[in-house]
Design a protein around this nucleic acid. Structure first.
Length: 288
DNA sequence: AGACAAACCTGTCTGC
DNA sequence: TGCAGACAGGTTTGTC
């Protein structure tokens, strides 16, 4: 579900949790991503009594920095997969069936737990892990991540130098988290439409000027989505429960059979499949 | 190397 | 109404 703008929206709405103390932990015991076990017990053991110091993001991963009173600090790693949600609830709000982690939160100066941070995930494609602080960059999931466009802006030469080494379709190239981290299936189609590039174009055929256009388009699409709080097609909500409004602004994604929105272009948006993922483009203005 | 399918799951929608 | 099948924002794994 969530791509960079959605995950960043969650991160921003989680900001009020910085400074709170984790006072309790409950886990569902169920495996998540790839049916792999989640260290629920370690989270309960190490995260309880820690203070949330910061909430960071790299690509589609969220990192909660947890400072322990004594002993090493920890980092809670969260990936939302397709249907993962991280939300702040008042204690006592009914807990949904697909809840997998509940962290009770209190003010540092008080004893009573008033809020809970809950992770729910219907399809269980998300990830939860606990890493010793300082070692998170070596975590298998984070180690391989490429450039985060919000942390380090993209430019034409970055795209061009990587694209020339890839024989993949440009859309598959954009989805490769090892190159650019955070771009997903919606915004890959959107960025290619904005840059007028056909999704099946071989990455290595991308000229330098068009690489610059693409870098610009990716940046613009991500920032634009972020200003709308992300795209809610179905499941996505921010940590405060708010839905993103960016689905109203999508130019191609999910618009198969509908007219192209580019001025003067009378094309019809086509839905195709590339590497098993739905892909949308306008055959008329994204030719070449 | 890269394309594809399947795998991990549940829910929703479509068509018969 | 019921049921089968397709499809869904992600990532990994195996096969051709």
């Amino acid at each position: 579900m969530p791509e960079l703008p959605e995950v960043e929206t969650v991160r921003r709405t989680l900001a009020p949790l910085v400074g709170k103390v984790i006072a309790s932990s409950w886990g569902s015991g169920k495996p998540l991503h790839m049916n792999r076990p989640v260290p629920y017990e370690a989270i309960a053991r190490y995260a309880v009594t820690t203070t949330i110091r910061a909430i960071r993001r790299h690509g589609k991963y969220l990192l909660l920095d947890l400072a322990a009173r004594r002993g090493p600090s920890q980092v809670l790693l969260v990936h939302l997969g397709m249907t993962g949600r991280l939300r702040i609830h008042a204690v006592g709000e009914p807990r949904g069936v697909h809840t997998h982690l509940v962290l009770g939160l209190r003010e540092p100066s008080k004893r009573k737990i008033r809020h809970e941070l809950r992770y729910t995930d219907i399809r269980r494609f998300g990830q939860l892990d606990l890493v010793t602080a300082g070692a998170e960059a070596a975590h298998p999931a984070l180690r391989v991540l490429g450039r985060d466009p919000l942390v380090e802006p993209l430019d034409g030469s970055f795209i061009h130098s990587h694209a020339r080494q890839s024989g993949q379709a440009i859309k598959s190239f954009l989805l490769n988290q090892r190159i650019i981290s955070g771009l997903g299936n919606i915004y890959a189609s959107e960025a290619l439409w904005l840059a007028r590039i056909r999704p099946t174009l071989r990455a290595r055929k991308l000229s330098r000027p068009r690489a610059a256009l693409l870098a610009e388009a990716v940046t613009q699409v991500l920032h634009h989505a972020l200003t709308h709080g992300g795209t809610s097609l179905k499941d996505f909500v921010a940590a405060d429960g708010a839905q993103g409004s960016h689905s109203d602004y999508l130019q191609v994604y999910g618009r198969g059979g509908e007219p192209c929105r580019r001025n003067t272009c009378k094309g019809t948006i086509r839905r195709t499949v590339i590497q098993g993922r739905a892909t949308f483009h306008c055959p008329k203005c994204q030719e070449r």
